[in-house]
């Protein structure tokens, strides 16, 4: 049995997966939020769940955080069952929900002390784990959490999720609504946490963050479209993709869409990204060159 499992998960350096989901399904009335989700995550991985709002990311993370029961399927965290062993799981995971969920009337320090106390520890005991993040908000430790800016709330929430030294961190859309510079800083923090051996599950609607994960699952309408390394996903893009531009890209887009040889054409930053059914044909006077697909191109292709 052991050997079989090892070969199945050989990608994780012959370790058993620390997170394992089998056929998780969940419906809210007639709405199927999750339709048979299966994946596993190795220890120390940064695993990204990439998809738009309403894809099922929050439901999935709430099941793994033992806050929600699936209708069917099973899941385990470090070998512990999310239903039977929920109390044990809660001691080894840190969960940062998408919505700010700290106590707005408590100060920064009081919030952190509260979470430390619940887990039977103290800020001092685990200060090393949170130091890099917490030192940025420590000058404001007497301020009410409700009066913090968005970026500082996020850092406090992450500190609270880390205060009991969890082995697995679940971050639900930590960078939504965050500007590009602060997003980069946040991902730098995640890399540091990974280097301390923490396994990180993170969801995001920003496709460009996929490249910062070890592996990603693209998720849409409760189903996983694909799971791979970011490089694996982009390498599997099935078409030749061209960046095409002119002085008026919107006009060019409408022109290209009339051409039956054009399989898909859409705006993408300063150019249009275009695939052809047959041989590529470009209108007169446009700039074009063949490019490698990004994760966002792959996502669009899967939805197409």
């Amino acid at each position: 049995m052991e050997a079989k499992n090892n070969s199945q998960f050989s990608i994780f350096n012959s370790q058993l997966p620390i997170v394992n989901c089998q056929s998780l399904s969940l419906a809210y009335g007639a709405v199927e939020a999750l339709k048979g989700i299966t994946f596993s995550v190795g220890k120390g991985e940064i695993f990204g769940l990439i998809g738009p709002d309403g894809a099922g990311k929050t439901s999935l993370f709430r099941i793994l955080a033992t806050l929600l029961l699936a209708d069917s399927g099973s899941a385990s965290m470090k070998g512990l069952d999310v239903v039977k062993d929920f109390k044990k799981i809660r001691r080894i995971i840190g969960y940062m929900p998408g919505r700010f969920s700290l106590y707005p009337d408590l100060s920064v320090e009081e919030n952190l002390t509260f979470f430390a106390t619940i887990f039977g520890t103290t800020i001092r005991e685990n200060y090393d784990t949170i130091r890099d993040i917490y030192k940025q908000i420590e000058p404001f430790k007497t301020r009410r959490a409700g009066a913090l800016s968005g970026g500082m709330k996020q850092k406090l929430a992450l500190s609270c999720a880390l205060i009991h030294k969890p082995e697995i961190l679940i971050l639900d859309e930590p960078t939504t609504g965050v500007d590009p510079v602060s997003r980069k800083e946040f991902w730098d923090i995640l890399k540091t946490l990974k280097s301390q051996g923490i396994t990180i599950l993170v969801s995001t609607a920003y496709m460009d963050e996929a490249g910062l994960c070890d592996r990603v699952a693209l998720i849409q309408q409760g189903s996983i479209l694909t799971i791979d390394t970011p490089q694996g996903i982009t390498a599997a893009y099935p078409h030749r993709l061209y960046a095409v531009s002119s002085a008026d890209n919107y006009q060019l887009l409408n022109e290209l869409r009339k051409n039956p040889e054009v399989r898909s054409a859409y705006i993408f930053g300063e150019a249009l990204h275009v695939c052809f059914s047959g041989e590529p044909i470009f209108p007169e006077g446009v700039d074009f060159n063949e490019i490698a697909a990004s994760v966002e191109d792959c996502f669009i292709e899967k939805l197409f």
Partner: peptide, 20 residues
Amino acid sequence: DEPTGGVDPIMRRQFWEMIF
């Protein structure tokens, strides 16, 4: 004000085409 946050990549582009 941030009209496309969290929207899927195809919808995001359709939204921009409405802007154009």
